[in-house]
Amino acid sequence: MSVALTIPMEHGLLLAAILFSIGLLGVMVRRNIIFILMSLEIMLNACAMVFIIAGAHWGQADGQIMFMLILSVAAAEVAVGLGLLLQVFRRFDSLDIDKANRMRG
């Protein structure tokens, strides 16, 4: 089934790993909730890219189906995350996540 893939799979996986690391770096370094959510998007995109690369490697459609499931997860995550962000902004008048580091606000 699989025609010889001219793009080496290792390079695609390396690209996904680099993107995931960038997103993880952003989640750990940034203290603004908007940037943390954007970095989470980059990480989810890197995960989806791994599925696409694997699906392309074996010439199957399953990778793209997993990509769609990750897409719906990302959409739900962003909707809830941005709702939480609005609540944090109303409560603390700031987007700094360190101001919300106590469980009882």
Partner: peptide, 30 residues
């Protein structure tokens, strides 16, 4: 990248949903 890898449907979904819908949510909140 998805298009080059032979997944055109995923590429379209990436543009429509990720770069379209989800980013519009971010724009609204900002």
């Amino acid at each position: 990248i998805f298009y080059v890898l032979g997944a055109p449907f995923a590429a379209v979904l990436e543009v429509l949903i990720y770069a379209g819908a989800i980013m519009v949510l971010f724009v609204f909140v900002i």
